[in-house]
């Protein structure tokens, strides 16, 4: 079945595992993939596209080996397949300049400072995915129990 993908890009394996673990409440409905750098992320995105999955949310670290997180997000924002994807920077070390570039050029929707609180992360991811689903999906009902149900139902009532 085609699903909406959540992509986590983080080079430190412990942090990456913690992030994926904290996203568990979204797992039954969304597919969660992790990548360790920009090149790895590209591979995951290619596979997702081939499988017909769409990318709903990217949670991206900034200080990655090779291409930096903000530069990757800017590139992805220019590509049709990931234009609508909600983009969140999850980092401790992005400077003001990089963050401004991410907002202006990558359509950055949120900035999460490390270390995160699981409850905050849930709220942010829920909110971002609800926005994504409301803007891009025809069927809203499959997401009511996992995302922001009242908001989805109000959108449904207005249809």
């Amino acid at each position: 079945m085609n699903q909406i993908l959540i992509l986590c890009i983080e080079d430190e394996s412990e942090v990456r595992d913690a992030l994926v673990r904290d996203l568990a409440p979204f797992r039954p409905v969304f597919r969660i993939e992790a990548a360790e750098d920009a090149a790895d992320a590209r591979t995951v995105l290619r596979e997702a596209e081939a499988a017909g999955d769409r990318v709903g949310l990217i949670l991206c670290d900034h200080l990655l080996p090779g291409q930096r997180g903000v530069d990757l997000l800017i590139e992805l924002h220019r590509e049709p397949a990931t234009r609508a994807t909600r983009k969140v920077l999850i980092t401790g070390q992005a400077g003001l300049d990089d963050t401004i570039r991410a907002i202006n050029q990558a359509g950055l929707q949120h900035y999460i400072a490390k270390p995160w609180q699981p409850a905050d992360l849930h709220a942010i991811v829920r909110n971002q995915l609800t926005d994504y689903v409301m803007a891009n999906e025809e069927e809203l009902l499959p997401y009511v129990s996992t995302l922001d149900g009242p908001r989805l139902l109000e959108a449904l009532a207005k249809k």
């Binding site: 149900g149 009242p150 139902l153 109000e154 449904l156 009532a157």
Partner: peptide, 14 residues
């Protein structure tokens, strides 16, 4: 019926 249900369910879910 659908709009009624969606509207009220949004109030009831929380």
């Amino acid at each position: 019926n659908t709009a009624t249900t969606a509207t009220l369910m949004a109030v009831v879910l929380p």
